[in-house]
Design a protein around this nucleic acid. Structure first.
Length: 513
RNA sequence: GGCGCUAUCGUCUAGGGGUUAGGACGGAAGAUUCUCAAUCUUCAAACCCGGGUUCGAUUCCCGGUAGCGCUACCA
């Protein structure tokens, strides 16, 4: 099996799924997984994209047995390093009369195509140079006349088998003799892919179905070369919500995008596997990479296009967030807090091939952030939401709390002011609170006293208190929030975290105005 | 235009000549909680259209329609 991306940008979800399916099949069958870099498009290919691609694949948890970075028996694995090989085979085809020299200029060909279209004929190559005597062709080439090499398409229909689509047949009438080597000596994609797959002993070509219509040309090439035709499995296209091919304007589409949103690699892999494949029975949704390796089968791949559903990915992500090792989760969480500027970090680095970023912070800070992550992570879709959800901890604005339209209802309740008064008074008297050492139990005691003294309970009691502490009538459990607030107030952070007492003081001040 | 591929709830899908057409996301309702979220329970929601084959088609065949892809000296 092979995954053969072009290094022209970040790894895209469509390609990631192709890579995953190849990998699953290879691992299940104990086959060999090859990574090959298709960089014959010099204008768009860049070396740095190759590194990015490799990093993205590793982050997903995929690996390979042969490739540009690990070597292998069929080196080189970068097409730009294999040009001699392509030229050699092209000359062989020429000698065997399976291919021929074409002296038509690009202009002529374009005119021919335009004319054919205007006459509502097939815009395929006329075959003008097909019949040229080989001697004449050779002579003209030696004389320095520019020419390309074309493959001679056979005079019969081309049939091949596709594991997901079944038998496919193309009439030779609609397949032009394709150019395999350009006049500038560079080979074209449809040609090199065959040379490489054959030479690298690829038995199963699993790729996007945008290549399905190219396959007859490739099959003709295998036959001309006298090499066995591999099995094909063409995967359906991944669409955006508007049923158009998923592209950048649909938002996040690269693997790096998802990583930066705080989507866990296991969640993305699981989601991608479910896009176009379902286990037998069709009821199970959660699969680890290992379970997928066991369950996967090419025969169960769906042939129809699939719309990428962000919501379902988020749901899966939540499942994995809840199941992830707490330490790893904290590491990723810390990264997002650093990114949001809520904590200081000189070197917040996420080596993209790593599952988890590395951020240097003190143990105290890490422990404290760990509590916040443990409190909030089970309720977010993506880890990038953590800083926002933690905003009641990091920022407090009493004035805003008293004027927020969202709080108006609570502020208007008849008992609210009594609760404010009693609670403020009690808390300001509390010794533990003045030291910033208030425990959850002590806080509960105070709340209970307020309850007893005012006779207010339930919502009418808790909402006003919550507004005093966090500025909002809704938020996380006090039992876990209070200790976080108190501990945070003793930490050195870019912006001081207010203790419970400081919050109450601010609140009282704002109320007095 | 030609050729190819595809077609089950809004979405991902299971199923398959006779089924109450199953699951999941999302939606709605309820329960729970001081609140939001999360969680749990319940509900609504689909076989593209037309022919044929058949006792019987959503399932098999043909056609239509729609979507997507390919039609390059792009990959």
């Amino acid at each position: 099996m092979r995954f053969a991306p072009s290094p022209t940008g970040h790894l895209h979800v469509g390609n990631a799924r192709t890579a995953l399916f190849n990998w699953l099949f290879a691992r299940q069958k104990r086959g060999t997984m090859v990574l090959r870099v298709e960089d014959t498009d010099v204008e768009r290919s860049e070396a740095r994209f190759e590194d990015q691609l490799i990093a993205d694949l590793k982050w997903l948890g995929l690996d390979w047995d042969e490739g540009p970075d690990v070597g292998g028996p069929y080196v080189p694995y970068r097409q730009s390093d294999r040009l001699d090989l392509y030229r050699e085979q092209a000359e062989r085809l020429l000698n065997e009369r399976k291919a021929y020299l074409c002296f038509c200029s690009e202009d002529d060909l374009q005119k021919e195509r335009d004319q054919a279209l205007a006459d509502s004929r097939q815009p395929i190559y006329s075959g003008k140079c097909r019949m040229m005597e080989p001697d004449e062709a050779r002579r003209r080439r030696s004389a320095g006349e520019p020419c390309a090499i074309r493959l001679r398409i056979p005079e019969h229909p081309i049939l091949f088998h596709d594991i997901v689509h079944g038998d496919v047949e193309f009439s030779n009438e609609v397949v032009s003799d394709p150019i395999i080597l350009r006049s500038n000596g560079m080979p074209v994609y449809n040609y090199v892919v065959v040379i490489d797959d054959a030479l690298m002993k690829i038995t199963h070509v699993i790729r996007g179905d945008d290549h399905l219509s190219n396959t007859p040309k490739q099959v003709a090439l295998y036959e001309a070369l006298g090499w066995p035709v591999p099995e094909f499995a063409h995967l359906s296209t991944i669409l955006g919500a508007d049923r158009e091919r998923l592209s950048k304007r649909h938002g996040a589409t690269s693997i790096a995008n998802f990583r930066d949103m705080g989507v866990l690699p296991e969640a993305l892999v699981n989601y991608l596997a479910l896009l176009g494949w379902a286990p037998s029975g069709g009821t199970r949704e959660i699969f680890s990479l290992k379970e997928l390796t066991n369950e996967f089968s090419l025969e169960r791949i769906t042939p129809s296009a699939a719309v990428f559903d962000m919501e379902k990915l988020y749901w899966l992500n939540r499942q994995y967030i809840k199941a992830w090792p707490p330490d790893d989760l904290v590491a990723v969480g810390v990264w997002f807090f650093a990114k949001a500027g809520l904590i200081e970090s000189s070197d917040a680095a996420w080596l993209s091939s790593h599952r988890v970023p590395i951020v240097q912070v003190s143990n105290d800070l890490r422990d404290w952030l760990g509590q916040i992550v443990a409190l909030l992570a089970p309720y977010v879709d993506r880890l990038e939401q953590l800083p926002e959800r933690a905003s009641p901890i990091f920022s407090y604005d009493a004035r805003a709390a008293l004027t927020a339209p969202d709080n108006a209802e609570v502020l208007g309740w008849p008992n609210t002011n009594a609760v404010f008064a009693r609670f403020t008074c009690k808390l300001l008297e509390d010794e533990a609170a003045s030291a910033g050492q208030l425990s959850a139990e002590q806080f509960k005691t105070i709340v209970n006293e307020v309850k007893a003294e005012t006779g207010v309970k339930g919502k009418e009691l808790f909402h006003p208190i919550r507004i005093v502490i966090t500025g909002s009538h809704s938020g996380p459990d006090f039992d876990r929030l209070i200790p976080i607030l108190e501990a945070g107030s003793h930490l050195h952070l870019p912006k001081h975290v207010l203790s419970v007492r400081e919050r109450v003081e601010e609140f009282a001040k704002a109320q007095a105005k």
